[in-house]
Design a protein around this nucleic acid. Structure first.
Lengths: 222, 222
DNA sequence: CTGATTGCTGATACAGCGTCAGATTTCGCT
DNA sequence: AGCGAAATCTGACGCTGTATCAGCAATCAG
């Protein structure tokens, strides 16, 4: 569960840089936080329990984080680092069946990303939606590249200038991002209603294809 | 801010029905809760403060609600009661420019709904996404009718059986609902990036039109 | 006016927050 | 191997909020 990444000069609550022992403690605290986030509601996560689970004391927690929110923020930053993988897919081919395949891959990858970081991303989005700047910033960092890529592709793929007049690339890209995000957060609740993940991916992919290319999605069978 | 509605035989924490005075106190507590929800993060809303703002004591709060979550749930139920207005729009015409107009109205109405109940809906969605049954249920109550209506229209409007084979009405409807929800939660953060609410509505409406009818959206200028 | 019913709250025990001062561990150096 | 100094951790504490009673205050029917 511990995500190693190029953390350069992490810092104490009082600004002092962290040695190896401290780094390790910090990691344990973050991991404990995810676990709790995964298994219970944000509202009743306590510093005491994070500390307990990390095998340390509450006082130690405050050495590294201002509060639970800040720990969560760090986790959200780690999640944002994983996005680029999804990104590359957008630059694939968008012609005909190939395009549909690209569409499907993106949708699938995005949902997988969400399934992996679900709890953290939910909290991130809530905090961002509630207006917390720090969280809006991480979300932008994660989503903007996707927005940009989509917008670029949309501009490039629209059939002709007449139709393009109606399409605002950024707005359309934002719509796609919104669609992906909500669907990813959502999909498990739909299966009981008789909508499989596959159905969802397929239909989401069709929408994506049509929005990017401005053309109707080709039929699946030939 | 107080929403009057046909609340039939509201009940005490111990199951006793409420008289007029009690009903009023309860209402004040709920209103205070919304206000706090609107002005601060869920994580740091306290019963003490709700009570203070409602001009009563914490002990009174617990007479009516098990905890802050339950008060929020009630608020979410009130919001769900307001959805039907959005619903009727879906049954409008979906042919050509008229269809685009229908699409726009739905999107616009949905966003307005969200702007009105934003804080409560955010919390509802988080709780539902975190797996809390009670909240999943209210969300379903609000969203299912919309899903149904969309699904019905989609089935009815697809151009021909060949293409229909690829479209799963419920999955497509779910995608539209997801799109609407996220965009509604989101739209204010996009304006600083240069995407106006109008752009958003227009592009969301195009997607909706294409998904429902299976045809390309007509150009805006005739 | 009065007793019964309905609605409210002060007092309380218990739990988590956030902050220090000081204890403990680790490390560089001889 | 052993000794400060620096790095890291924690016990203890005052404060705020939760959740629950037992009983006080308001209201109403007669």
């Amino acid at each position: 569960m511990a995500t190693r990444s190029g953390e350069k000069s992490e810092v104490d609550q009082s600004g002092r840089p962290l040695g190896p022992r401290a780094l390790n403690t910090r990691r344990r605290l973050l991991d404990a936080t995810v676990e709790l986030l995964d298994s219970s509601s944000v509202r009743d996560i306590s510093v005491v329990e994070i500390a307990r689970r990390a095998g340390t004391s509450p006082a130690t927690f405050y050495q590294y984080f201002k509060d639970v929110g800040e720990a969560t923020l760090r986790l959200a930053e780690e999640a944002a680092d994983e996005v680029p993988a999804v990104l590359e897919l957008i630059d694939g081919s968008w012609r005909g069946q190939k395009g549909m395949q690209t569409s499907r891959s993106i949708t699938d990858a995005f949902i997988r990303h969400w399934d992996a970081y679900r709890a953290v991303l939910l909290v991130r989005n809530l905090a961002a939606d509630e207006g917390e700047r720090r969280f809006q910033k991480v979300r932008r960092r994660a989503l903007h590249p996707i927005l940009e890529s989509f917008a670029r592709k949309i501009e490039e793929c629209q059939p002709d200038p007449v139709a393009s007049g109606d399409v605002h690339p950024y707005a359309a890209a934002a719509a796609l991002a919104a669609l992906l995000e909500r669907l990813a957060a959502y999909h498990k609740e739909l299966e009981p209603i008789g909508v499989t993940r596959e159905d969802l991916v397929e239909n989401c992919a069709r929408i994506m294809y049509q929005t990017v290319t401005g053309r109707l999605a080709p039929s699946a069978n030939g």
